[in-house]
Structure formats: C-alpha cells, structure tokens
C-alpha cells in the first residue's frame, strides 16, 4: 500500500506502523462523571465498518508523525490523510 503523507507525499506502507481506530484520539477526561464508563467505551467499543474507516498510522521509519488515514476496508482505497496533531486540535485537544 501507499500512503500519501501530507508533508512528504506518497510513501510505502513498509515505513509505517498501524495502530487502529482514530477514535483513540478522543481520550476521555479523568474528571468526567462517568469516567470509568467513558474509558471503557473509549478502549473497548469500536465500530468495524465495511467501508470508510479512519485509523491511526505512525510513520515510524519516516518523520515520526502520527497520521489519520481514511481507508476503505473493502478496497484499500485511501481517500484522505491528515496529520493526527492537526486532527487532534480540530477535535478540541489543544490544552
């Protein structure tokens, strides 16, 4: 596979480490009322779509950036690649 890195262009997937669902960005707060429940949902409850799926890839043998890659699980078509740090900011993780 080839991942079109937002900074470096198309890169071979052998340079990457694959982690999984990009919802891992949405880590709950410890202070939340239902923190235990929220963490349970965060860690264990995942969608498993046949189709577009946002997942985290790490450019380990590259620029060491975490990426959010939108990949179709039925065709491997990659429709979007973003820096995870930008995505995290967009999801309100600037603190």
């Amino acid at each position: 596979m080839i991942i079109n890195h937002p900074l470096l262009g198309p890169r071979d997937s052998s340079e990457f480490y694959h982690l999984g669902d990009a919802t891992l960005i949405d880590r709950p707060n410890r202070e939340d009322v239902n923190a235990a429940e929220a963490f349970y949902e965060y860690l264990y409850v995942r969608d498993n779509p046949a189709g577009k799926y946002c997942e985290l890839w790490y450019h380990e043998q590259g620029d060491r950036s975490w990426l959010v890659v939108t990949r179709d699980t039925t065709t491997h078509e990659i429709s979007e690649v973003k820096l995870a740090s930008d995505e995290a900011r967009a999801r309100g993780r600037s603190v």
Binding site: R27, Y58, S85, D86, A88
Partner: peptide, 19 residues
Amino acid sequence: AVAIYRHLDFIRQCLYPDW
C-alpha cells in the same frame, strides 16, 4: 524501546498536540 517511543509520540501528537 521502539514501542515506548511510538507511545510517547502518540501522547504528544494525538492527545496533547499543543504541548
């Protein structure tokens, strides 16, 4: 060593991108 490095990068990029 490699996994922990990756993990630290996960924390600093995916969880706290503005640290």
